[in-house]
Amino acid sequence: MAHGYKAVTWTPFKKRFDAWMLAGVAVYLTGFSAASSLATTDGESFTPVQMLIRATGTLAFLMLTFILCIGPMARLTPRFKPLLYNRRHLGVTTFLIALVHAGLVTLWYHGFSDINPIVSLLVSNPRYDSISGFPFESLGLIALLILFLMAATSHDFWNANLGPGLWKAVHMSVYGAYVLLVAHVALGAIQFEKHPAYVVLLASGAAIVTALQLYSAFFASGPDAKTRPTDGWLEVGSAADIPDSRAIILEPEGAERIAVFRNGNKVHAVSNVCRHQGGPLGEGRIIDGCITCPWHGFQYRPEDGRSPEPFTERISTYETQIRDGIIYVNPRPLAPGTPVTPSLIEEAVR
């Protein structure tokens, strides 16, 4: 897969988003430190490093929980979609906060001795055969490595070079990281900090993420039509069903989804998968004559699936036809960038 990549440029929204995010992180960390000092009497305070370990640990858990809720929320209500497109920055920030947590733990608890801190992290508690005594540090370390892998490959360069499929697979491992993180907290901090508030927070975080994921998996807006071929062509539906500049998404059995767009009285069918990061083109719309991806705004000409000059992205196109006001699509994809003559909707239907 040798096509180039374009970095998504900074937009005013992204800048505002990052400003809010960093402000939120700062508010949490200062709030936690202030409340920790207020809650303890003089001479019985937390050492600053240990307080920061706790502040960053809890924050990383809360942020990862929030991140995992964004996907399902965006599928349930489009309002959250902008968060979805900017989830990366949240992810990278969460990794950095978790890294500070891990770094301080390694330095403080495993440093100041002549044993290598990383070795100490893995061997100083040998009770791998116990549940309540399990060395929870190793779980956190694996979760951190997963977050690192994701943060490191979050740049578009990797998306372009690994291909959207593999990239997505790598980034699905975040669910594994979350499971490890929940276990890390349950077998670690919660074994010592037994106040019910912590147990409730951990359990409700895990429950909300699971429930939202399940709910959106079952009820979210999937493809608009799941179609079986009739004489080799797929039935899309009445031309009147597609609003102007918008699309209907179909899912041919065992093949990539197809977005069928209407542009005025012309009907075009293209692959539903954006070359950038696999965004759902069929949820986008036609702007300035180009199909525009809802995720980061990559554009393609509907008639041949090519990005306008100077860009070079191409997506597959499909043949269409209209019989008795019903649109049909040939589910065999044409080579990316192949021009196709659009089918025309008769006046009556418009």
Partner: peptide, 8 residues
């Protein structure tokens, strides 16, 4: 979260 910590 900070307020519920066990005193150190």
């Amino acid at each position: 979260l900070a307020a519920f910590q066990t005193p150190p």
